[in-house]
Design a binder for these strands. Structure first.
Lengths: 154, 154
DNA sequence: ATAAAAGTGGGAAAAAGTGGGAAAAATGCT
DNA sequence: AGCATTTTTCCCACTTTTTCCCACTTTTAT
């Protein structure tokens, strides 16, 4: 699958639905435009996974030894917040109340595409994070990229 | 079987019953939607096993050398609280008072899918655990996933 | 300017969830 | 054993939630 890119803004309606922005949808292969999994993100956001991506990723998590407390805790966190979703007739995603609460979503959302998945943020929270991410991007870039050898990050 | 996912909220009624949430039931193969085993979980919860999963998992435990005191103790812990259950006509599970007490279940439950089994928590206890699992999920993700190569956990 | 696509809101049918009563089974007492 | 009492099981009926679909508005493209 091609890398997903872009930041999209959309609105959560009274029933907890938002429209998948068509620009984002068009980036996906046709047979993967309708089925997704949403789970809790590691930051204060949700993550939307195209189903095929989810299946690969979840298989890894599932393979962990669940008799080890840390791995079990991680599995719990990863699987419990997850929910399979399909787009409705108008191309919208319906969120459950506990997912909305987890990410503190208000009326305005930001969808942030990230290689093969999409993060879902509350607009205000996202802007706040952008202003003060707790890291300096220059330093971060250096640290994250230093082992990669060739190529500097644009 | 596909990975079971999701967090579902339900209520324990005066008779000690709760409705299997339809979202969870639908994730199971049709011939496995009615028969389960419930036993004590490793954390303060119960575990609901689809019968076929139980058979595989319990075979592993049974195979442990029971002449070793620690293994014998673990076997006892694993099997003693176990109970086979079926759904009633309305799709509900009836719990025994023994199991209710073990997990400290009140009126509100959280069912939390974990790959091929389902944990049953008291709602307050679950929320408490989520707020303070004793781990930072970001750190946990890093530690647990670091050997797996590509991909981060959501 | 007009048509097509994208985005929004809400109502009605269907499904899920809940509580409780009656029948059946198990238990205990004389 | 026979009867009474408690416990369990099964089923019915009501309420709430969810799902699905329709219709309208706004934006984009030609």
């Amino acid at each position: 699958m091609k890398s997903l890119i872009g930041e999209y803004h959309c609105k959560l309606d009274a029933k907890g639905r938002f429209l998948m922005p068509s620009g984002l949808r068009k980036q996906l292969p046709e047979d993967q435009q309708n089925d997704f999994v949403i789970n809790r993100g590691l930051d204060k956001c949700l993550v939307l996974w195209p189903l095929s991506v989810w299946e690969k990723e979840s298989a890894k998590i599932r393979a962990l030894n669940s008799y080890d407390p840390k791995r079990r805790a991680f599995q719990r966190m990863f699987f419990s917040g997850a929910r399979e979703v399909q787009l409705d007739g108008s191309g919208r995603v319906l969120l459950t109340s506990f997912l909305i609460e987890h990410a503190g979503l208000g009326k305005e959302l930001v969808l942030e595409a990230q290689s093969d998945r999409v993060e879902i943020w509350d607009k205000t929270a996202f802007e706040g994070w952008m202003e003060d991410p707790g890291y300096d991007f220059g330093m971060l870039a250096e640290e994250v990229m230093k082992d990669l050898g060739s190529g500097e990050g644009g």
